[in-house]
């Protein structure tokens, strides 16, 4: 049985924000991650604020500028199957299709996928780790085969579990947020928190704030996007290594774009070394080989996750190869 909490399902965003400003209040979107966290007692919750009653948080709409607004409560299945997303931002549709299992995709939302808690077994387990307000990270000297090879700051070694976040970051999306101080937009690439900035929170949402939507810019000319996820089993697992590519092609040449890794770091990890290796070049064998070396040049593996080094090389090689053939 879960610990006790009060429950409210407000009908307006303003009421939801008011409820969320109370101490120990949390957002319930699809509820898949929240209920797991409650059951495992890794969050201290007094009040569950369901946002299912907020009309403005549903649906996928074209924006005036030619982009898309995806309401936070759009399910992962809806994102994966949406015809416009599949056509214009296939990388995001692919990322969504790789999330968890079909029932979880039917219930989990795009907003919740961006706000989910990490899967580190010390964090999820009975360990009073740094991220839960303790004074130790257990990963560097423990079972660290699924932990980060970038971005830990030698503080916390979680990998961010989202498959859609790297895609949104690569596609230059923005996160729409509503809160006590009104509405604001944040680039998807700046939505998640590095341990060195603050170890006890995964996103930059302030108390009382709700992620209301993600906004995709109109696809730039020549955009191709993909997502690749490698995991221990083919279904229902988190990424060991993954990459979201959003590259703009001018003929055969990569004119610009972004490369963002999953399963790599405490946040979706933008790989500037790979971007530097491919932008301005055609994706021939030499360029791809250089990019595959570059992706792990700055990696800092732990005792049990050094297998991620050749894995990321392989993922980058295969995905650049794939995206080079439209």
């Amino acid at each position: 049985m879960m610990p006790s909490f009060s429950y409210v399902r407000p009908g307006t965003l303003q009421e939801a924000v008011q409820h969320l400003s109370a101490k120990g209040a949390v957002v319930h979107g699809g509820g898949t991650d929240l209920l797991t966290c409650l059951r495992e007692r890794i969050v201290d919750v007094q009040k569950v604020v369901s946002i299912q009653g907020l009309k403005d948080l549903y649906g996928v709409k074209e924006t005036a500028g030619g982009g898309l607004r995806i309401g936070a409560l759009t399910t992962i299945t809806e994102v994966a199957e949406h015809p416009v997303i599949r056509e214009r931002y296939p990388g995001l549709a692919q990322g969504a299709a790789e999330v968890a299992s079909p029932p979880l995709r039917n219930q989990g939302t795009i907003g919740g996928n961006l706000c989910q808690k990490p899967r580190c077994w010390y964090f999820r387990g009975d360990f009073h780790c740094l991220r839960k307000g303790g004074d130790t990270c257990y990963a560097p000297f423990g079972e660290n085969q699924f932990h980060a090879i970038f971005g830990s700051g030698d503080i916390c070694y979680i990998v961010h579990p989202s498959d859609t976040a790297p895609c949104l970051s690569a596609l230059n999306a923005e996160i729409e947020i509503a809160g006590p101080a009104g509405r604001r937009l944040l680039p998807a690439a700046e939505f998640h928190v590095l341990p060195e900035d603050y170890v006890m929170q995964e996103t930059w949402l302030a108390p009382g704030e709700i992620l209301t939507a993600v906004r995709l810019p109109p696809p730039p000319p020549g955009l191709r996007s993909t997502y690749r996820k490698v995991r221990a089993r083919r279904s229902w697992d988190f990424a060991l290594a993954g990459v979201a590519l959003a590259l703009q092609f001018d003929g055969d040449r990569v004119a610009g774009g972004r490369v963002v890794l999953s399963g790599a770091a405490p946040v979706p990890w933008r790989s500037r070394p790979v971007e530097d290796a491919v932008i301005g070049k055609t994706l021939d064998r030499q360029t791809i080989a250089a990019a595959a070396q570059a992706v792990v040049a700055d990696a800092e593996p732990l005792a049990k996750n050094a297998y991620k080094i050749p894995l990321f090389r392989g993922v980058i090689e295969e995905e650049l190869e794939r995206i080079s053939r439209p």
Binding site: S4, S6, Y7, V8, P10, G11, K47, Q52, G53, Y58
Partner: peptide
């Protein structure tokens, strides 16, 4: 909502 649920007042723990 698509779930069919409507707004509700706060339910005490």
């Amino acid at each position: 909502s698509p779930m069919g649920n409507k707004e509700t007042a706060e339910m005490a723990p």
